[in-house]
């Protein structure tokens, strides 16, 4: 297997393009120069840190390390879900809703994949477990964030409609059902699209990586199909769970719409 190492010079060359783009944005007064530089710097620092951590964990195989890393990943993803909401639940559920639904969908599917599909011995070997969980979490996170944002924003904007239905003696489920359906759908559409166009427009990232690293294309394809199915299922289940639980929590025990449980970010 042929493996081409990248040198520091290669990376610096790539960064020149980002800097050029940032400078152009400055001239166009887009007001995002700082964000670009910070985001680019974060990419370098975070990925380097992860690389070190992975190197360390791969060398010292221990179940506890895997547990710790997955927990950190879950917390980071849940924070991200929370921060992407224009209106989010205040208190614990702002964080907990995303965390819970990602835990239910991503962790269980990753576990099943490791135990019964990849079947490595031991199943928790970080070289497989961590990238797999990372891909699951990353995609599920997008679906849940989209779905929840749509739900809370729509509930906020359409509160008179929801309450109008409650006034007519409709249950909370009836009152919120249209919004809930739209929210789940908008959380799932990106992943459905990426299944539909996989390989036509672009090669999916994981498969690209494997091919660049020298894997035979058909092996890379098999992995990619497995991953796409897993993340689609994970995103779908996670979004359904999150949107359902959130829509329930928009109402209290007397089926009153409780938008006071939401707060605007920033």
């Amino acid at each position: 297997m042929k493996f081409i190492h990248l040198t520091e010079i290669d990376l610096i060359l790539a960064s020149v393009f980002v800097i050029a783009m940032a400078v152009l944005s400055l001239f166009l007064q887009l007001g995002i120069f700082k964000q670009i530089i910070i985001a680019a710097a974060r990419t370098v620092v975070q990925l380097l840190a992860v690389g070190m951590v992975l190197k360390f964990i791969f060398a010292d195989l221990h179940f506890g390390w895997l547990l710790l890393v997955s927990l950190i990943m879950l917390i980071a993803a849940s924070r991200e879900v929370m921060q992407r909401q224009a209106k989010r639940f205040s208190g614990f559920w702002g964080f907990g809703l995303g965390a819970l639904s990602m835990f239910v969908s991503s962790f269980s599917l990753t576990l099943i994949a490791l135990l019964f599909m990849i079947e490595n011995k031991p199943w928790y070997e970080p070289q497989y477990a961590i990238p797999l969980l990372g891909m699951m979490l990353g995609n599920t996170m997008n679906g849940i964030a989209l779905g929840l944002d749509r739900l809370t924003t729509n509930a906020w904007e359409q509160r008179t409609v929801i309450e109008g239905r409650l006034m007519m003696g409709h249950t909370w489920k009836q009152a919120v059902e249209t919004i809930r359906r739209h929210s789940i759908r908008s959380g799932m559409i990106p992943i459905i699209n990426s299944m539909a166009i996989a390989g036509l427009v672009s090669l999916p990232g994981m498969m690209t990586g494997q091919i660049l690293a020298g894997s035979p294309p058909v092996e890379a394809v098999k992995y990619q199909i497995l991953i796409l199915f897993l993340i689609s299922a994970g995103t779908g289940f996670g979004t359904m769970v999150a949107v359902w639980a959130a829509s329930r929590y928009l109402f209290d025990e007397r089926q009153r719409l409780r938008l006071d449980r939401l707060k605007s970010s920033r």
Partner: peptide, 10 residues
């Protein structure tokens, strides 16, 4: 609650 709001029309 739905039954109550059915009886108390608003």
């Amino acid at each position: 609650p739905p039954e109550w709001r059915n009886k108390v029309g608003f």
